[in-house]
Design a protein around this nucleic acid. Structure first.
Length: 226
DNA sequence: CAAACGATTTCC
DNA sequence: GAAATCGTTTGT
């Protein structure tokens, strides 16, 4: 129970779980605002059999209006339509015909935008529950948007689902301990340009936990604050 | 209808 | 450095 933010003083298990789940309204702002705030939060995937897979978000990227790299830059299509709706929904797409990438839709209706979740630090129990590739280091099991979806069993069938407690997926707030470390500078965030793009390459809309071994790419040096 | 392309990953 | 692989998007 330690480390759980619980302003109600109600420590029943169900109440604590509800407190920690991020509500829809929290995502109702620009992707650039949400993306850094998602670092340190926990992505929870609940499988049909009730099994929960968990990982702390350690890397994100923002995609929003006026951004040529955003999938909603040109017009509304079948693939990107979820981004045009309200916040707090899951946007999943197939990339290179073989991997999936998962996003959280942000901002109000009519402001197409989303935050790409690029890397997780998987919880010990989750590492035990899944099967890792033969030579894979556990810390790297969800280091990258495609690997993350593979580890968390995220695919197109989650497209358009809402991030809510008890659903197929939801997100929980940073722990008090993690937030405290960020506040005193024990943990730092780095802001850089995004990965793998041909357009919008100079926008510094990628964030990650400085020094974290679970991040997708290290060599890209900080553009801000170095 | 045909062709190019990609917010990736892995292996040579 | 290049292949794998396929739905979406864009062009003819």
């Amino acid at each position: 129970m330690l480390g759980n933010y619980n302003p109600t003083g109600d420590y029943s298990t169900q109440a604590v779980i509800m407190e920690r789940v991020i509500p829809t309204e929290w995502f109702d702002r620009s992707a650039v605002s949400v993306a850094p705030d998602l670092i340190g939060c926990t992505l929870v995937r609940q499988l049909p059999d009730g099994t929960q897979l968990r990982g702390m978000i350690v890397e994100t990227e923002a995609y929003q209006e006026g951004d040529p790299a955003c999938h909603a830059y040109r017009k509304q299509t079948k693939r990107n339509q979820i981004m045009f709706g309200g916040p707090g929904y899951v946007y999943v797409y197939l990339i290179y015909g073989m991997y999936h990438c998962v996003n959280v839709v942000t901002d109000r209706i009519g402001a197409p935008s989303a935050v790409l979740i690029r890397a997780l630090e998987l919880a010990p129990a989750t590492l035990s529950a899944i099967s890792l590739k033969p030579k894979e280091k556990p810390i790297r099991a969800a280091a990258g948007p495609g690997k993350l979806c593979l580890a968390m069993q995220i695919s197109l069938d989650l497209y358009g689902t809402k991030l809510e407690s008890g659903q197929a997926m939801w997100i929980e707030h940073r722990s008090i301990d993690w937030q405290a470390k960020l506040d005193i500078g024990t943990i730092e965030l780095t802001q850089t340009t995004r990965i793998g793009l041909t357009q919008g390459v100079d926008l510094p809309w990628r964030w990650y936990v400085k020094g974290c071994k679970a991040v997708s790419v290290f060599e890209k040096l900080p553009l801000v604050g170095s």
